[in-house]
Design a protein around this nucleic acid. Structure first.
Lengths: 348, 348
DNA sequence: CTTAGCACTCGCGTTCTCGGAGTGCTAACA
DNA sequence: TGTTAGCACTCCGAGAACGCGAGTGCTAAG
């Protein structure tokens, strides 16, 4: 072994090995690697290099007489410094643009992006929905239901509508509710969802001083409306193409597969993982156990934040087997994030 | 074989066989059956009976020297006339009631029912959402977005809110939109969603005669709003516990499992199947291929409509392996349907 | 440092065997 | 006529044995 920790040749061989393994999933032997590398080296030499790589923890042999397989750290090195991403073909990019622009409503755009990711990569695509806390309230409305139940309609940001049911202390007439809504709209419209409760507190002070009963009641209703806003419904995501993961040989173990699918359904942990990329500002790659999340230990996650007007709204990405075609997937995720940002930008 | 097509004894033996097979999934042999039946018959006699049952297509032998397994028709007979459903234990029923009543919003009640089914049966639970067409429009509202885009908010029935985005011919002011909404509310409120378009046609006639431009424009907007109402979004369902199906041995084939999960995602065909039970007015059971739907060929579906005030709103049920514990699942589905109907009934 | 040679090791697919479970048939029995 | 015991037969599935191919590590020579 030469002085340097990992010389040119070893790096190149690792690169070829990873690429080869990604292609056909079989452990790569020295003979194969000798041919593939195009380096005019004998298998024996390769074997020596492989022994070094194994010592460094970059490759491993499933058993004595199998070829070598990249370890998580091997993939990591590959992704970080060996990988040569080829740009996306023009026609693919074209069709992506068309597909994502074919939708008008934000909800559909997001869902479309998700299935686009799934389709292009033949893995699972995921798009985290913009967190409401960062969006601003546009308008609020009360609608009387039966007795003390009131339906609250929230129009958020551009075009998202939410509704909740609250229970009031007493029965309100439609006119009263209208009045309360008017007051609250004047006070809250345009504020960010996350900051509503502070504003409410301030308003409450003011109302208390002016002894305005209507205002106090209105604030009470608003309080109830936004009560669980922080706790529950933190975020959500749309997933597409989960089932495609079933086609990969490394997912053959039913137990692990079930864990993975359960994880998709629970959402919580996955959201937490994606959240990490929210602040990252650029693409992030979690390889195998790097995610620190059991069910994903055989998977890699490639995630990128998407943003509108410089403001990051959410994260999107793909989930697939560790042995995925990073060279191809990385630009796809990258481009999709940009396209999604552009598509969400309200024009005209 | 005696004169009658299927005498008492044969029926009893079939019942015992099916029960036994449901319990442990192994083909049932004559010796086992002899003991289990409690009928003081020798295995040889049993074999004769089995030969008859096989001839009738009620049981089949996977291979020459295995025991017998019920066929679809065998299950059918079992379910139709052999089955003795035991009522649900009081405490289970109690906890079901509590669980379903713990939710306030319809959406959550439905989702709750779905996961309750899944939990109790350890299979997949499904609840078809009430079809909008049957619900009545309560109120409609327009909100100007940018330029010619208008956000339409629909409050449907008790507390469901929907929103759509439409594009108008020209730019409308907030006041104009308010006016249009007022007019439409007066004309459409209380009408069933499915009948809105007819009503619109009539209104259009009237408006044309009175040459009222505002009314015509309003109707145009409404037209656009309800345009795709019939085509798309026909229905939807909430599914829970799909992953539990992965635990059943008969789902071990990854290919078939994937087909099944794909079917869950596509929704279309499954909805069609559930639709059949909508008109049935009582519980329906589809055993294996009876559903006529490939991906479900190894599954049984037990579905029951649920209704509020005598009006059927939707269907709910469970999906699991053909070899499921019908005796237990049937009452669960039955009770859940009733509880759901009760919970959806708007009181107080 | 590289390479050829060699012995060695594993895993995997194939084949074979063997035992158990269960059947169908026949003949005797009630 | 229905029931039962006996028997030969079939088939599956679990192991064991085997050979083969792929690949390795080591050693010694270039």
């Amino acid at each position: 072994m030469s002085g340097e920790l990992l010389n040119e040749r070893a790096q190149h061989l690792l690169k070829v090995l990873v690429e080869r393994f990604i292609r056909d999933g079989q452990p790569v032997g020295s003979r194969t690697l000798a041919k593939e590398s195009g380096m005019a080296l004998s298998p024996a030499t390769i074997r020596n290099v492989m022994a070094d790589l194994e010592e460094l923890g970059l490759v491993a042999a499933p058993h004595t007489s199998a070829g070598r397989v990249p370890t998580v750290q091997g993939y990591r090195l590959f992704v970080d410094s060996l990988l040569s991403v080829q740009p996306l073909e023009a026609r693919t990019l074209d069709s992506m643009e068309r597909q994502i622009e074919s939708q008008a409503e934000p909800q559909r755009i997001l869902a479309g992006a998700s299935s686009m990711l799934a389709e292009l990569t033949a893995m699972a695509g995921v798009v985290m929905l913009p967190r409401r806390g960062d969006l601003s309230l546009r308008r609020l409305e009360f609608l009387p239901l039966s007795d003390t139940r009131v339906l609250v309609i929230l129009v958020i940001s551009d075009s998202e509508v939410q509704n909740r049911i609250i229970h009031t202390e007493r029965r309100f007439s439609a006119a009263e509710l209208q009045q309360a809504a008017n007051y609250l709209n004047q006070a809250l419209a345009g504020k960010r969802m996350g900051q509503l409760r502070e504003t409410l507190l301030r308003e409450m002070e003011e109302a208390r001083q002016s002894m305005n009963r209507m205002m106090l009641e209105a604030i009470q209703m608003a309080e109830q409306t936004f009560a669980d806003d922080e706790a529950s419904g933190q975020g959500d995501f749309v997933l597409a193409g989960q089932t495609q993961l079933m086609d990969y040989a490394e997912m053959a173990d039913m137990g692990r597969l079930r864990q993975l699918f359960d994880a998709f359904n629970q959402k919580r942990d996955l959201l937490q993982l994606l959240d990490r990329s929210l602040s990252a500002e650029s693409m992030q790659i979690f390889i195998g156990s790097e995610s620190g999340y059991g069910p994903l230990s055989d998977c890699s996650v490639i995630a990128a934040p998407y943003s509108v007007k410089g403001e990051t709204l959410g994260v999107l990405g793909v989930i697939g087997p560790t042995r995925m075609n990073y060279q191809r997937v990385i630009p796809i995720v990258d481009v999709t994030a940009k396209l999604l940002g552009a598509a969400l930008n309200p024009r005209q």
